[in-house]
């Protein structure tokens, strides 16, 4: 809607004519901020599905995975220069992570302020996935930093050979901490997606009583498939299937 005052809502309109822009209105309200979280979450979720599928190439040998990684840099050529596609994807993902994180931080602070005094008679509330959204999100954020240092910049990777992701993956997952951190993070991811996917549908207003069950089943399936898909790689390295 434009800046014109609504014909019907005159008596309800609170301001004097000019309203702030739609995006400002959205970001300032709890409902809009949640929508920003939902949209950025869905963007990350889509990325994760492709990331997970790409990871499975590890099971078909070093040539297959390394070739795939090299191909990713050539996507869009000759329109895009070598490596540009990857950088565009990284920028979009960074934007999604930042929006998601900032909105989560601001909303969490508001939520804690809205309930300053806890009940003395405590009762367990909501499902485990729902209760762990905030800490699960923090764990995932820390993991992303580790993950980039490990397998993108290769800063902390025990092998750290550029252009050889297969060998770097095997080297990382062969250490107890490399495999351990990854597995814990993927379990956190599963829980986060389980509540997050359904919650995003509810927040964006696409949920209704008829769809509710289907959406919940989809959320569980998506969480399960992502977790198993991602976990399969470190587990395969640890039991020696991939070496």
């Amino acid at each position: 809607m434009g800046p014109l005052p609504s014909v019907f809502g005159m008596a309800l309109a609170t301001g004097t004519g000019r309203r702030p822009s739609t995006l400002t209105t959205l970001w300032r309200s709890t409902v809009g901020k949640k929508a920003a979280m939902a949209v950025s979450g869905v963007v990350m979720l889509l990325y994760l599905v492709f990331h997970m599928l790409g990871n499975l190439k590890v099971f078909f040998g070093p040539g297959e995975l390394n070739g795939y990684a090299a191909w990713l840099r050539t996507v869009g050529e000759p329109f895009l220069r070598y490596g540009w596609f990857l950088w565009i994807a990284r920028c979009a993902l960074l934007a999604a992570v930042v929006v998601h994180g900032v909105a989560a931080y601001q909303l969490s602070r508001r939520d804690l302020r809205a309930r300053p005094q806890k009940y003395l008679h405590q009762r367990r509330q909501a499902s485990y996935a729902t209760r762990t959204m905030r800490w699960g999100g923090v764990i995932l954020a820390l993991f992303i930093v580790w993950h980039i240092l490990d397998l993108t910049t290769l800063t902390v990777n025990p092998r750290g050979e550029p252009g050889h992701p297969y060998q770097n993956i095997v080297a990382s997952f062969s250490t107890w901490y490399g495999g351990g951190i990854y597995c814990v993070a993927m379990l956190a991811l599963g829980l986060h997606v389980r509540h997050g996917f359904w919650s995003a549908a509810q927040t964006l207003g696409v949920n209704n009583p008829r769809r509710d069950r289907t959406l919940k089943i989809c959320a569980n399936l998506l969480a399960l498939v992502l977790t198993i898909g991602f976990l399969s790689v470190p587990v395969a390295v640890m039991i020696g299937v991939v070496h």
Binding site: F8, R28, T30, K34, L107
Partner: peptide, 23 residues
């Protein structure tokens, strides 16, 4: 339109928390 906008704005201004879909 005005009702929805206005009531959500007042709800936020009153210091209620946001919805995390806990149910």
């Amino acid at each position: 339109a005005t009702r929805t906008r206005s009531m959500v704005a007042t709800m936020d201004a009153e210091g209620f928390g946001g919805c995390t879909n806990t149910g």
